[in-house]
């Protein structure tokens, strides 16, 4: 005869079995997208709609009817067919769409972005400015006031907005200035001029003038790069590649003669390597367009030795 414990166990067993047998059809039909119709006692194959928005929490209107769920949401048991969807979130443009739901399938609308009605805009500059740029490290915003010849700087939130220097007499004024790796100097250039601005008084005095412009009338400047020591410059012109010092008295050193007059160049300031396109003579004596790599790192290139002493030294 079964003991009390064994009787309870039997009840538990049959209860578990009943839950399994009755629950399983519902779980499986739900998984496969079937809907049980209580009136007809029939299973109908339905589809489903998965909605995700950025930002979340949008109200969902399905064929004009507001649903209880907010995004992200999955709408189950949709009969196959066309549906109009409207997603609404306060202060955002609504998202509208017409979709077709297939039986037994999921329609995933999971990359919806809701755009704000009035984008969050915030004034960063505190003074009148003419143009601006953001440094490559995305740390600082630089502002140019052309009228008063002043350069300002602030962080990306506009905090610590301050004057950092004067513009050099460069004409036309460059649209964008390049910040030296040590963040203490700026350079801008046009076709025949390079303007240098020292932001640090100590550096400025050692440079012998502030701000200053290097004039080059015999060639066109295509690009100028800061060398990693924040003192030398790599200059790409229409006739050659040169290096020079960020100093009014500098005398450039020519490194490579170029055969193309508009060579594009890229400078890797971490490895101090210049990549450029040029036509160079091959073994057969003909010119071919190639991309060249010029390593200027102090480790592989006697860079310092190449720079001639300044006339005043």
């Amino acid at each position: 005869m079964a003991s009390g414990g064994q009787r309870i166990r039997s009840i538990l067993f049959y209860l578990s079995l009943s839950i399994f047998l009755t629950g399983l059809p519902f779980i499986l039909s739900f998984a496969l997208g079937y809907k049980f119709n209580m009136r007809t006692f029939k299973f109908t194959k339905t589809g489903l709609l998965a909605l995700k928005t950025q930002p979340q929490g949008a109200a969902i209107y399905l064929d004009g009817r507001l649903l209880n769920e907010k995004t992200p949401a999955t709408i189950y048991e949709l009969l196959p067919g066309k549906y109009n969807i409207r997603l609404e979130l306060e202060k955002y443009y609504p998202w509208l769409g017409e979709v077709f739901v297939d039986a037994g399938k999921v329609l995933r609308l999971e990359k919806i972005i809701l755009f704000p009605l009035r984008p969050d805009i915030k004034q960063l500059n505190k003074n009148e400015i003419f143009s601006f740029w953001v440094d490559e490290d995305k740390e600082w915003v630089y502002y140019v006031d052309e009228e008063d010849n002043v350069i300002y700087k602030s962080d990306l939130e506009g905090i610590s907005f301050k004057e950092i220097g004067s513009l050099p007499p460069i004409n036309p004024l460059p649209k964008k200035w390049k910040v030296s790796p040590d963040k203490q100097k700026l350079l801008g250039f046009n076709l025949h001029q390079i303007g240098i601005i020292y932001l640090n008084a100590q550096d400025y005095s050692s440079a012998g003038g502030f701000p200053f412009v290097l004039e080059y009338s015999s060639f066109k400047i295509l690009d100028v790069f800061w060398y990693s020591d924040s003192y030398h410059l790599v200059l790409v012109t229409d006739i050659n590649i040169e290096v020079l010092e960020a100093n009014p008295q500098t005398i450039p050193v020519k490194l490579v003669d170029l055969n193309k007059s508009n060579t594009p160049a890229f400078y890797d300031d971490v490895k101090d390597t210049l990549y450029f396109l040029d036509s160079q003579k091959a073994a057969d004596g003909k010119l071919y367009d190639n991309v060249y790599k010029l390593e200027l790192s102090a480790k592989v290139y006697p860079f310092k030795d190449l720079i001639r002493p300044r006339p005043n030294e």
Partner: peptide
């Protein structure tokens, strides 16, 4: 893209 493919991890 099937309902069961979507529901499997959820269930």
């Amino acid at each position: 893209q099937m309902a069961i493919g979507y529901n499997l991890p959820r269930i």
